[in-house]
Amino acid sequence: MSGESPLVDVRGLTFGYAATPVIEDVDLRVDRGEYVGIVGPNGSGKSTLLRLVLGLHEPDAGSAELLGHPARAFAERERVGYVAQDVTEDEKRMPITVSEVVLMGRFPHAGFGRVTEADRDRARDALETVGIGHLADRKITALSGGQRQRAYIARALAGEAELLVLDEPTVGVDAESVDAFFDLLDGLVADGLTVLLVEHDIGAVIEHASRVVCLNREVYFDGDPAAFAESDALDRAYGTNVRREEGGIVT
């Protein structure tokens, strides 16, 4: 990891939608191969931080670099995959098949050119990798929440993303599928993918991620998951909303 430039490099980042900052003086560096989970209470600015990393907002102060470019420049975006909270079910009745969605991962590569057979092969392979190859011709809205999130991961894989950014991907996904989803991520990280994840399920992050960032406007903790579980960062960041139980941590 030494010497190589980080995939994400955030320094002194401050941002607010109104006068009060949602994010204040945040530093975050993600190197290749890391699996970073960002946790924090509701309204702690974790999704906003992700949006800043992706260039969707202009920082008020500080800088956000993605793949060595300012995030707002949107350069080399074929190297970034993005999976958001699943909103498909309620908001979109659009007719589109799973394979059409996954093929979108190839669009930044194709530009204004044609989508080739090689592009389609890659999309098919990506669907197989996430285990839903048999659903390729289904309407995306006919899939369960967990299956849809796999399809979006397949889209990122089809695009040969090096960095996968996920914003609360398991919201609305049933418990068994959540486990399977994190197993899938583990496999992808083992294959060399870098993952930056925002997740409300602290237990899952501690179990799977290689590094935990605890955020509530500022960074309260950044480091090893085991150390995080032992530390008081959780209590400080979450206030009194945390109970430690035998089975794990409940907010």
Partner: peptide
Amino acid sequence: DEVPERADDAEKPTSD
């Protein structure tokens, strides 16, 4: 018969 299958349908990722 093509109603959404439950997630267990997609549990064998081939990546690992």
